[in-house]
Write a protein that binds this DNA or RNA. Structure first.
Lengths: 205, 205
DNA sequence: GGAGAAGCGGACCGCGGGTCCGTATCGTAC
DNA sequence: GTACGATACGGACCCGCGGTCCGCTTCTCC
């Protein structure tokens, strides 16, 4: 439990690996194209180092994902409206979903890599539990939804609409432009929340 | 294009492999536990036969999935209400979603295996396109939704709420009972469709 | 600067998907 | 029934990837 501080070279290498993995996942066509050996080589590091630092492939991807996600998390937890806590529930739900969607659009390959890490459910992650808890809490505060006991499922369902492979499919296969997907999600969410449909343009976070 | 009929032993082996794979996937804890060699052994067949018949692992899983799904498809396309075509759109959407959900509950491991076939998007399948097309067609006929141009996304989003890994997570990790999930999905769907919430009990198909 | 802990790296391993080809079986023509 | 080409069989084999191991290097602390 003393949580001793890591050695200098270890910290440097860890950062190098994350950076290398980031660029590799960004450039690649499909997450499987990026092997652990590739990442090690790109980081100028041995494979052992990489596994020592992150445990396994899933651990590395998770760490990278969390790192990238950090700014969004911060914005949600203590940022200004419309993402921050001062926003009224309904608008904040919409803002949050849009933020998650945009994140997945911007980090398509990384999110894909994370979600399709075969042996490990994408739902068993810290950040998913976090999003779900926040979303559920907001839904409970929306009139007409609270107390029905289905806010839990609703939160899951809304997040499911931002799944990385769905996003990848809509953009890559179907060629849908970014804003069309955002508008689709926004209207879908608004509808399930009982808000009237106001499809006005959305500002980028 | 002549599509010559397969040899008798080939047909027999194909059936044996499908049957073996079915029981193995049903029994297993996680889809990855079932290897191609396992399936071949259980079917009393060489690995070569298996790959000759189905191309690759994905092909085998897809074939098995489609086979299992066939009755549901038939019911939707030409069965009696509430799944069949005679049902008014809104109710039929609900019935269809419930049918898909029940299918995934009943074939959890198989659906999981299919959806997490790494290198191949679960959206690029015949049956997904089919469900989506049907659903979208129904949504277009529901007053208050048609013409908005978002029925396409809505159909995707509704189907996303039935994703196999979400279902697996809710049942296995969260321990939610079957009917609670069905009720959750039903209410969620009803809400997005603008129907008032009538959480009455649902009959099993 | 010396000792010991912490970290490094890349040869190595096991396993699983996919291939290959000599052999067995089937369908058909006679 | 038999002979023969086409088709399918099967399991030894290959390859690539995630993950491990251990002799060597580098850091840290006194």
């Amino acid at each position: 439990m003393p949580e001793r501080t890591p050695r200098k070279d270890a910290a440097r290498n860890r950062a190098a690996v994350l950076a290398a993995a980031d660029t590799l996942f960004t450039r690649c066509e499909h997450p499987d194209d990026v092997t652990m050996a590739d990442i090690a080589a790109a980081a100028g590091v041995g494979k052992g180092t990489l596994f020592r630092a992150f445990g396994d492939r899933t651990g590395l991807i998770r760490a990278l994902y969390e790192t990238r996600l950090e700014p969004v998390r911060e914005n949600v937890e203590q940022g200004p409206p419309p993402l921050g806590p001062a926003t009224p529930p309904l608008q904040r739900v919409l803002a949050l979903l849009d933020a998650v969607l945009c994140f997945k659009l911007d980090n398509r390959h990384l999110a894909l890599a994370l979600e399709q890490t075969g042996s490990d459910s994408p739902y068993r992650t810290e950040h998913y539990e976090r999003w779900h808890a926040v979303l559920r809490g907001l839904l409970d505060r929306i009139p007409g939804l609270s107390g029905t006991g289905v806010t839990d499922f609703t939160a899951h369902a809304l997040l499911a609409a931002t799944r990385a492979d769905l996003v990848a499919y809509l953009t890559t296969e179907k060629g849908l432009p970014r804003d069309e997907i955002r508008a689709g999600l926004a209207e879908f969410a608004a509808r399930t929340l009982g808000a009237d449909t106001t499809p006005g343009p959305v500002a980028e976070g």
